[in-house]
Amino acid sequence: MYSRAEKSKIRKDFWTTFGQYMKPVPNAEGLRTNWQNYKTGVKDIYFRMKAERECAAIGIEITHADEELQQLFYEQFEEFKVILEAELGEIWNWKLHGQDEFGKTISYIEKVKAGVNVMEPNDWPDIISFLKPRIIALDAFWSNMKPAFEEL
């Protein structure tokens, strides 16, 4: 078992490695970006990447406190589902009004890769290979579709 400090250091080392790997990759507009803390620029919409002990995941989280407005954002993503999935090259899981780990109501669109463990440095290439093309594809999608969400 790892101590809390060891777990924290391993996770920090993973995200530092991921950041270094992604640093030379420009965003869709050709600019440098902080991929691991991607900013959508739209309140209550987040692109989240997770690396855990049993899986890695990437997704879009809609966290608006007003569930009706959260649903409106979700439905806007549904309007662009074909475009999103074409950019990603795969189908993701969609959930309206699910719960996050703190019991807060959120909606999300995500892809999970099971069978990898961030605590195992040997799994890091698989995790990075999973996250990298998907965050780049989300960025490409977002660079075209963001204006539709800013108007909501």
Rank of each mutant, 00 (worst) to 15 (best):
E68L: 07
N34R: 11
M1Y: 10
D66K: 15
T17G: 09
A140G: 13
Y38S: 10
I83M: 08
F80E: 15
R4A: 11
Q76F: 05
P121F: 00
M22G: 01
H64S: 10
G41D: 05
I135P: 01
H97C: 07
E90P: 12
L72C: 06
M145Q: 09
E101D: 08
K104A: 08
P26Q: 13
E78R: 09
T17Y: 13
W124C: 08
N34Y: 00
A148E: 12
T16P: 01
F141D: 05
T105R: 13
F18Y: 11
E101Y: 07
L138T: 04
M145D: 05
M119H: 02
R134T: 11
S129I: 01
V82E: 12
Q70L: 04
I136Y: 02
N144P: 03
E61I: 06
T63D: 10
R53K: 12
T16I: 06
A5N: 09
A51E: 01
K81I: 07
F14Y: 11
E110K: 11
M49G: 05
F141G: 02
M145H: 10
I109N: 02
N117V: 05
E87Q: 15
E101R: 10
F141K: 01
D126N: 15
E54G: 00
I106S: 11
K95H: 12
M22W: 00
L88I: 15
I58Q: 08
E110L: 12
G59S: 09
L84V: 07
S107F: 03
L72R: 13
F77C: 14
F130D: 04
V118K: 01
P26D: 05
P24T: 03
V116Q: 06
E101N: 12
D126S: 14
T17K: 13
H64M: 10
Q76W: 03
I127K: 00
S129W: 01
G98F: 06
K23D: 10
E85N: 11
E6W: 02
N27S: 12
N122M: 01
E90S: 15
N93L: 04
H64R: 14
G89M: 06
I91H: 14
I45C: 07
G115E: 01
I135N: 07
R48W: 04
V25A: 09
M49P: 00
E75K: 15
A148M: 14
N117W: 05
R11P: 04
P121D: 00
E120G: 00
I135Y: 00
A140I: 14
A114S: 07
I83D: 14
W124T: 09
K23L: 03
Q99A: 13
I128Y: 01
I128T: 14
E101P: 02
E79V: 12
G19T: 12
D139W: 01
K50Q: 06
A56P: 03
I91D: 09
G30A: 10
N144V: 11
L69D: 05
A56G: 08
